[in-house]
Simulated scan of single mutants.
Amino acid sequence: MTQIDVNNVLSQMRALSAQASDGMSSATGITSSATSTNSAGANFATLFKQSIGAVAAQQNDAQAQSSAFERGDPGADLVKTSIAGQTADLAFRGLVEVRNKLVDAYTTIMNMPV
């Protein structure tokens, strides 16, 4: 399972923003910037899908551990179950924060005068 790295996502967004602003300086730069942004956008989409999948996997694992503990399975441990639940909760909160930042950025861009 992979962890969500918010700092990595934000640094990628900043790099894309820098590429876009550099590409605006000349007409030839705009076309090359558009192609690099599309490929970088695909990478971001892939990263975001993987992050959502990782969060879902953590939540499923926490639910499975919780169910096993409730059933009284011999291998179920309260501490591991609690940690899995807290990890899944933290990962979900991080994903929600990233989503909120993306929605805020989209809203800001859409409200810019052209």
Rank of each mutant, 00 (worst) to 15 (best):
Thr2His: 04
Gln3Thr: 05
Asp5Gly: 03
Val6Phe: 02
Val9Ser: 03
Ser11His: 02
Gln12Trp: 01
Gln12Val: 03
Met13Asn: 03
Arg14Ser: 06
Arg14His: 02
Leu16Glu: 10
Ser17Glu: 09
Gln19Trp: 00
Gln19Leu: 12
Ala20Arg: 04
Ala20Ser: 04
Ser21Leu: 04
Ser21Gly: 00
Ser21Asn: 03
Ser21Trp: 02
Asp22His: 09
Ala27Thr: 07
Ala27Cys: 03
Thr28His: 02
Gly29Thr: 04
Ile30Gln: 10
Ile30Lys: 14
Ala34Pro: 00
Asn38Asp: 10
Asn38Ser: 09
Ser39Tyr: 07
Gly41Ser: 08
Ala42Leu: 06
Asn43Gly: 13
Asn43Cys: 02
Thr46His: 11
Leu47Asp: 04
Phe48Thr: 14
Lys49Gly: 10
Lys49Cys: 07
Gln50Ser: 15
Gly53Asn: 11
Val55Asp: 07
Ala56Lys: 11
Ala56Asn: 13
Ala56Phe: 04
Ala57Gly: 03
Gln58Thr: 02
Asp61Lys: 08
Ala62Gly: 01
Ala62Leu: 02
Gln63Cys: 00
Gln65Val: 00
Gln65Asn: 08
Ser66Gln: 11
Glu70Leu: 03
Asp73Glu: 12
Pro74Val: 09
Gly75Pro: 07
Ala76Ser: 12
Asp77Cys: 05
Lys80Trp: 05
Thr81Glu: 07
Ile83His: 10
Gly85His: 07
Gly85Lys: 12
Asp89Asn: 15
Ala91Lys: 14
Ala91Gln: 15
Phe92Ile: 04
Arg93Ile: 06
Arg93His: 13
Gly94Met: 09
Glu97Tyr: 13
Val103Ala: 05
Asp104Trp: 09
Asp104Thr: 14
Asp104Leu: 15
Asp104Phe: 11
Ala105Lys: 13
Tyr106His: 10
Thr108Glu: 15
Met110Tyr: 10
Pro113Thr: 14
Pro113Val: 13
Pro113Arg: 11
Val114Ile: 11
Val114Tyr: 11
